[in-house]
């Protein structure tokens, strides 16, 4: 159903069930692609140039913080891709660190409905 006008969302999530649940909601709304590790995430950013990234923090191979750091250290226009951290880490220190590293928003996974995530994404798209 993906048409040309749909925006691209890169979902970085290592839990397959959560990934599926997000996928079901996103299908038809956005062109979504999924990365299960931090390394994959950086690869896909390069390959697909997503309009927005949903980033988990606790990831195999390379954690979300490092993904964020490397993304923001790029020299091309991809460096400014909006990032919404969607993680189950809820400590203030984690939220602060993410913001400092350049996350545009932070949501605690268990504490938000999927609809809240999609409306946050839409909000970013409207502002863009």
């Amino acid at each position: 159903m993906a048409d040309e006008t749909q925006r691209t969302v890169l979902v970085v999530e290592d839990d397959p069930i959560l990934k599926n649940l997000l996928g079901n909601t996103f299908s038809g709304r956005y062109k979504a692609m999924y990365a299960g590790t931090g390394k994959e995430a950086l690869q896909y950013v390069e390959e697909y140039k997503p309009d927005i990234i949903l980033l988990d923090l606790m990831l195999p191979e390379m954690g979300g913080f490092e993904v964020l750091e490397q993304l923001r250290a790029r020299t091309d226009e991809l460096k400014d891709t909006p990032v919404i951290v969607v993680s189950n880490l809820s400590q203030e220190s984690d939220q602060e660190k993410a913001k400092q590293l350049g996350a545009n928003d932070y949501m605690v996974k268990a504490e938000v409905a999927i609809e809240e995530i999609t409306s946050k994404i839409d909000q970013f798209f409207q502002e863009a």
Partner: peptide
């Protein structure tokens, strides 16, 4: 202690998130 906090957060919250989102769907 802080490792425990993040592990607990992850271990407990990931399944709870799955249940929540599935029920919401």
């Amino acid at each position: 202690k802080s490792d425990f906090i993040s592990t607990a957060a992850h271990q407990l919250r990931t399944p709870l998130t799955g249940i929540r989102w599935a029920l919401e769907a």
